[in-house]
Design a protein around this nucleic acid. Structure first.
Lengths: 146, 146
DNA sequence: TACTCAATGCAACTGTATTGCATTTATCAA
DNA sequence: TTGATAAATGCAATACAGTTGCATTGAGTA
């Protein structure tokens, strides 16, 4: 997703020690072109070298908190995780296939969201905009799994 | 939220028998100006007349499936439920306050989402667009709960 | 060395939702 | 009206995603 990103620097930039496990979690997320679930991430890491489930959740919370990583809702219970917007890539909408459970990133220009004017008059504080399209991806459509 | 809606007719229009419990669930949802969580709905109903938690979930699934009711994600685990778009009101974005957990409906015109052109070229099938703003509502800002 | 603190692991727990199966209620033909 | 059938509902158990409390480890340092 972001080959230009130096994960070590990324962690340092938000005042997080670039510990081995944090780096490994961030690498798994960053080396994918689409967001992953927490258990995807845990499974990937655990296959190579043991890491606790709770540690994965704690690191994810930390990274989301520091806005290095974005938590994307599926509309269901599990959240997906992808690299957050940074100098190398913009915020973008997501497509979630209800059939195969794949979460995909869409082109940031795929849809225009008029926010700036709205933000000015909104009485509360807006921290995040989450935009997700739900449907059936082209592979699942082919298989007519519906 | 939709005083003009006749819930009995709404159920019939999607070929669902307007049973007493379905009507009661739909009334609780429809009589609110903002989406409610499943347990909010269950609590409200249970206060008056006993209804099982599982029944509430099953009715909600049914109503969401038939597109009478919209399931709105909080970004967390619990979903919120509001009347779906119909002849009396349009689809609209939501604002979720991370501090007090209140989910609010925003004006449909509050933000423009350019979908029509995008839909034409998208290789999969788009069923739903979910747009949610996360932040702190003006009441919580006042209390500086942050 | 002894102390401190952050990172991690493990077990138990929580909240939200789902499943399986039994029971009740509604519908309808005989 | 009765009996058969199907739909709706309830209850207990379970699943899943995530969280909490507390013990352990390991690095830095007084």
């Amino acid at each position: 997703m972001c080959e230009q990103c130096n994960y070590k620097e990324l962690l340092k930039s938000v005042h997080l020690e670039p510990t081995e496990k944090r780096l490994r979690v961030l690498e798994v997320i960053g080396n994918n072109t689409f967001p992953l679930s927490a258990s995807d991430i845990h499974d990937t890491l655990d296959r190579n070298q043991s890491i606790n489930r709770v540690t994965v959740y704690r690191i994810l919370d930390l990274l989301v908190d520091k806005k290095i990583v974005d938590r994307i809702s599926t509309g269901g219970r599990a959240a997906y995780y992808g690299l957050g917007p940074n100098e190398h890539h913009q915020a973008h909408p997501h497509f979630y296939c209800k059939s195969c459970g794949q979460m995909d990133c869409l082109n940031p220009g795929a849809m225009a969201v008029e926010m700036s004017n709205f933000k000015k008059t909104f009485p509360g504080r807006i921290d995040k905009l989450e935009l997700r399209l739900d449907g059936i991806c082209k592979n699942c459509l082919k298989k007519t799994i519906n």
